[in-house]
């Protein structure tokens, strides 16, 4: 036994890896004689956008694709013309679902809209009680981007009021601006790299539709643990 095995495990593992790698491995995808182009010093990443599902170039095409994807995922997507319309829509949903308590965070999009609801609010900005948020009917948050290719909403712990706001309440309402619509996943990662160059938030999440499961007989059920409903309001 080594004197302090724990301290040495890092070196033991790295040592075993280096020893193992002294033998070179065959190039990937070469199935016994089947020709394959050589590993191109991994510029594989440069071509990713060409392999992924196709996205149109104009705003109209992209918003249409986002809408199609969101509908397929059973999320509600509404494109609205003004902040007033957004507030009105939010009030309409609040009335229809009978919201009594709202969880949210400070943001130029959420502040006015949530205030207009005139309901008790749990704000996450300066910390909150988990039970308090759990009793809310809805979590209303901003986001970093909407991704046309997949119908996903990109949120981070900085942009969307922390980690739990977008998953703990039974309904998640995302407020977004048209400029936040982006084409595809590679542009989402490019955006993250520029926006958070000085330090990434501790959580980055691609939310694609409401919480779902197929664990019982592969039958789709919404709201397994997270929100049963996802509504995206875009102005």
């Amino acid at each position: 036994m080594v004197a302090n095995p724990k301290m040495n495990e890092r070196e033991n593992i790295l040592g075993r890896i280096r020893e193992a790698l002294s033998l070179p491995a065959p190039i990937p995808g070469a199935h016994h004689g089947e020709p394959s182009h050589p590993v191109s010093e991994c510029d594989a990443a440069a071509h990713i956008p060409e392999w992924l599902p196709r996205v149109g170039v104009t705003f109209e095409e992209q918003i249409a694709l986002f809408r199609t994807n969101a509908t397929e995922l059973k999320a509600d997507f509404l494109l609205l013309d003004s902040q007033e319309e957004l507030v009105a829509k939010l009030r309409e949903i609040a009335a229809a679902e009978g919201w009594k308590k709202v969880a949210t965070h400070s943001h130029e999009l959420t502040d006015d809209a949530c205030a207009a609801l005139g309901l008790p609010m749990v704000r996450t900005d300066n910390g909150y009680e988990a039970r308090d948020m759990e009793s809310c009917d809805v979590g209303i948050s901003a986001c970093d981007a909407l991704i046309a290719q997949t119908g996903s909403v990109l949120v981070t712990s900085q942009s969307a009021g922390g980690r739990a706001l977008s998953v703990l309440p039974p309904h998640h309402v995302v407020l977004a601006r048209r400029e936040q619509l982006i084409a595809d996943l590679p542009s989402a990662f490019a955006l993250l790299k520029t926006k958070y160059a000085s330090g990434y938030p501790s959580l980055i999440s691609f939310i694609t539709g409401p919480s779902r499961t197929g664990d019982i007989e592969r039958i789709l059920v919404l709201g397994a643990h997270g929100p049963k409903k996802l509504t995206i309001l875009c102005v």
Partner: peptide
């Protein structure tokens, strides 16, 4: 699973950072 993206794809880069609401 035959999905374009699963419901949640999340990257965790640390414990709660200064200025964050929870974690």
């Amino acid at each position: 699973a035959g999905q374009v993206m699963t419901g949640y794809n999340t990257m965790y880069g640390g414990p709660r950072q200064p200025g964050e609401a929870d974690g």
